[in-house]
């Protein structure tokens, strides 16, 4: 069976609140989906280096990153699934650094020139089709500005701009898990 969902968990394992929420999400997914229909990847277990901004993936060896680490395999899985789910804590209106390492490293999925979408410049996609992208942000403080900046950031970044469908859900506590029902069917 082709993997339908690729789940990228960007949470660290030293925060009990995040660990608890991630475990709940994992349980929910395992109950809803067949075991061989999804791939769960904990980014913390891989070697995810930050983007160097070297443009190797654009002009030297287009579509391939110069850094040889876990990202190549993750990008393969990302591009071969139908739905990608990114789980991240929200901090300063952004994801955490680990998740951002990965998001920045999706640069090989784009061509080095821009096009417009809804009147805004975006990077032109290298591929004709991208998976649907669902982002789950964990934010226990219910800060309106933190949530708003996060939503604006993630809604307008390249990976979401090219995705077939994009949704963002913010979870603060267990009652918010109803929202997951809408994402994972």
């Amino acid at each position: 069976m082709k993997i339908k969902y690729t789940i990228l968990n960007g949470c660290y394992d030293d925060n009990s609140f995040q660990v608890n929420i991630v475990q709940r999400i994992q349980k929910h997914i395992s109950e809803k989906l067949l075991e061989d229909s999804y791939d769960w990847i904990d980014l913390i277990d891989g070697e995810i280096n930050p983007c160097r901004g070297c443009d190797y993936c654009q002009i030297k060896n287009p579509g391939i990153c110069a850094i040889k680490d876990s990202v190549d395999l993750i990008l393969k899985k990302y591009m071969s699934c139908k739905v990608a789910i990114i789980i991240t804590p929200i901090q300063f209106g952004c994801c955490n650094a680990l998740t951002k390492h990965f998001i920045d490293r999706t640069e090989p999925l784009f061509l080095p020139f821009q096009v417009t979408k809804n009147g805004t410049s975006i990077m032109k996609g290298r591929y004709s089709k991208y998976p649907k992208l669902y982002v789950i942000g964990i934010e226990p403080e219910r800060s309106i500005e933190n949530r708003q900046v996060f939503k604006d950031f993630i809604r307008n970044c390249n990976v979401s701009a090219v995705s077939e469908e994009f949704k963002v859900t913010i979870i603060s506590e267990e009652s918010d898990f109803n929202e997951l029902e809408k994402l994972i069917i």
Partner: peptide, 20 residues
Amino acid sequence: FPVYQNSVPSIVLSFFEFMI
């Protein structure tokens, strides 16, 4: 800093996390 994917680059986020 440069904008990467509509936000601060990940090394700046690492710096922020360290500072916190």
